[in-house]
């Protein structure tokens, strides 16, 4: 088991290096610092201004190979910064990136974690309910409702949610954030509700299929033949076996947490990493964006490894690898 974790982590690290390489190619080779300067300063700026910008932001080194000082290149700099988590300053306004990342982590997690956990619990419960009533009206209605809710863009959920609940009903503040424990829930409530509403459709549909499939298996028949009631069959047999495909799906869902955080944080004024990304895009801040992609990948790879490992906890057949 330990060997597997080590192997997996090693490959994850190699993949991360690949990500850094890709970022380098994109932002230093394809879109040169000259290009970045032009975008930041303006198309019509005179060459001296562009040069000054490049020097100011530390992009005046050779890109890959420096004959005098072999390690004083943009390439090495790029890797060094990422791997030591010292990201330097943003291209747009010069604020220290690492600090902003650290500040943004908290609010992002405050939204993403409850989003994920409640989303999972709620979807699983709803899917169990619908699957129990399979082939009846409840089930058929449920599936149609799922497809309907899945087809609505997250943007619309957010706009709708803000308008309906924030403006019309005035239950929660439309946007803003205050980290103090007494008030934080009020500000997170609306984005949380919106996040749940937009994600529930797809999840319930998938889990329902899983539950129905597991429910048709032979071991369920055996359990019934022993005298297990429907409820016990669901909770002790179907649910436990369904965890395996459910786990597989959580890996797929995690990127959507990123997407969601981007939109939700920006719409609802939550100062997390998502907002930071939006600002970076609108401000043409390549340095911050590079750092964010790196961190995003790091987190994602970590999540993938964690899911792989958790398989062994859930499925006894995997344990002895």
């Amino acid at each position: 088991m330990l060997a597997y974790i080590v192997r997996r982590t090693a490959y994850g690290f190699v993949t991360l290096i690949g990500v850094l390489l890709l970022l380098f190619v994109l932002f230093f080779l394809y879109a040169s610092p000259h290009e970045m300067a032009r975008r930041a300063v303006g198309e019509k700026a005179p060459p001296e201004v562009l040069e000054q910008w490049i020097v100011n932001h530390g992009y005046d080194k050779p890109k890959v190979w420096n004959p005098e000082h072999p390690f004083d290149t943009l390439l090495v700099e790029h890797f060094r910064r990422a791997l030591s988590f010292d990201f330097g300053r943003g291209d747009a306004d010069g604020t220290p990136i690492t600090q902003r990342l650290r500040e943004g982590m908290g609010p992002s997690l405050a939204l993403a974690v409850p989003s994920f956990v409640f989303g999972l619990l709620f979807s699983v419960a709803l899917a169990l309910f619908v699957a129990y009533f399979r082939e009846t009206y409840i089930d058929r209605m449920g599936v149609i409702v799922c497809v309907l809710t899945m087809s609505i863009s997250t943007l619309l959920y957010i706009i709708g949610g803000q308008f309906l609940i924030g403006k019309l009903l005035r239950w929660f503040p439309i946007s803003g954030f205050d980290a103090s424990p007494s008030v934080i829930v009020r500000f997170l409530m609306l984005p949380l509700v919106v996040s749940l509403a937009s994600g529930v459709g797809g999840s319930v549909r998938f889990y329902r299929t899983v539950f129905i499939e597991e429910g048709g298996r032979d071991y369920v028949r055996t359990a019934r033949a022993k005298g297990c009631g429907d409820l016990r069959v669901m909770t002790h047999h179907v649910l436990r076996n369904a965890l395996i495909p459910i786990l597989t799906r959580t890996v797929v869902v995690i990127p959507f947490l990123f997407t969601g955080s981007l939109l939700l944080e920006s719409f609802f004024g939550i100062p997390g990493l998502g907002s930071l990304t939006v600002d970076a895009v609108q401000g043409n801040d390549f340095a911050t964006l590079r750092a964010l992609v790196f961190i995003g990948s790091l987190l994602f790879i970590g999540a993938q490894i964690a899911t792989d490992v958790s398989y062994s906890l859930v499925d006894p057949r995997v344990r002895f690898e």
């Binding site: 990500v19 390489l21 932002f27 995690i254 992609v293 990948s297 994602f300």
Partner: peptide
């Protein structure tokens, strides 16, 4: 693997920022 380990939206943003 490399492409898969970057969340889709982030990758999209990075590509468009770089390509214009």
């Amino acid at each position: 693997s490399v492409l898969m380990s970057i969340p889709d939206l982030l990758l999209l943003i990075a590509l468009i920022m770089a390509m214009g």
